[in-house]
Simulated scan of single mutants.
Amino acid sequence: MRLLVRPDTVLRWHRDLIAGWHAAGSRPKRPGRLPTVRSIRLLVLRLVRENPSWGYRRVHGELLVLGIKIAASTVWEILNDAGIDPAPERSATTWAGFLRSQAEALLACGFLETVTLAGAPRARGDRAPHPPHPGSGRNHSPDCLVDDPGGPEPGHGPGGRGLPCTVSDP
């Protein structure tokens, strides 16, 4: 009696059938990537709500700093799904808003004064000149011409004695 197929062919068909069943059982139920964890989604939305001028790339960088590894495109998708516009369209910072947010730093700049001491220790009878009144914007020491752009550097006055100088930030 002659067989139409050889036994090896029947065994190969059986192996392919079992492999197909196994592959179908291990295939994910939904195609595509896994959804983003809810806590990360909420964190992204919170960062954008608290910092309206940040775009998706800045938020992505901040998440990396926090140790959360997520793709920039995922951050973009989260913002897009939430209906949040891109950063330039979301908020245009006005000068008044910028100055209001930076008011504390701007006010502190007018009162910043640094006293520098350079060079060798002074002799007993040598008295240091009194520093100028804060906010005066002038340096009254003849040995240190800080306010003069062409003058010597602080502490390198006449004779190179290294006298202390007051550097004011006008």
Score class of each variant (00 low, 15 high):
153 E>K: 05
98 F>K: 03
67 G>W: 01
148 D>T: 02
133 H>D: 00
126 D>I: 12
62 E>M: 03
97 G>S: 03
90 R>P: 02
51 N>Q: 11
128 A>M: 11
38 R>D: 15
56 Y>F: 08
79 L>P: 10
91 S>D: 08
77 E>R: 11
9 T>A: 14
165 C>H: 04
161 R>K: 13
96 A>N: 10
34 L>N: 12
146 V>W: 06
60 H>Q: 09
117 L>N: 13
28 P>W: 08
141 S>V: 07
28 P>A: 14
166 T>E: 01
43 L>C: 12
81 D>L: 01
156 H>K: 11
31 P>F: 10
18 I>T: 14
13 W>H: 11
7 P>H: 06
102 Q>D: 07
126 D>Q: 15
139 N>V: 00
1 M>L: 13
81 D>S: 08
134 P>E: 07
160 G>R: 00
150 G>S: 08
112 L>Y: 11
92 A>M: 09
129 P>D: 02
99 L>G: 04
146 V>A: 05
16 D>H: 15
43 L>G: 06
131 P>W: 04
45 L>P: 01
100 R>K: 15
36 T>F: 02
133 H>E: 00
85 D>Q: 13
146 V>S: 08
79 L>A: 04
157 G>N: 00
135 G>L: 04
37 V>N: 09
29 K>M: 06
96 A>F: 00
23 A>P: 06
10 V>A: 13
119 G>F: 06
95 W>R: 12
69 K>V: 12
126 D>K: 11
89 E>Y: 10
116 T>M: 11
144 C>P: 02
107 L>A: 14
37 V>S: 07
84 I>Q: 03
51 N>A: 09
25 G>I: 05
161 R>V: 00
137 G>V: 06
167 V>Y: 08
123 A>K: 10
119 G>L: 07
47 L>I: 15
94 T>Y: 10
94 T>W: 01
159 G>P: 05
129 P>F: 09
100 R>F: 06
155 G>S: 09
69 K>S: 12
106 L>T: 03
96 A>E: 14
45 L>T: 04
54 W>T: 08
150 G>R: 03
49 R>G: 08
49 R>C: 08
70 I>H: 01
21 W>D: 12
77 E>D: 10
18 I>C: 10
112 L>K: 12
85 D>M: 10
1 M>D: 12
139 N>P: 07
136 S>Y: 05
131 P>Q: 00
63 L>W: 01
132 P>C: 02
21 W>G: 12
41 R>N: 02
2 R>W: 08
114 T>Y: 11
67 G>P: 04
14 H>Y: 15
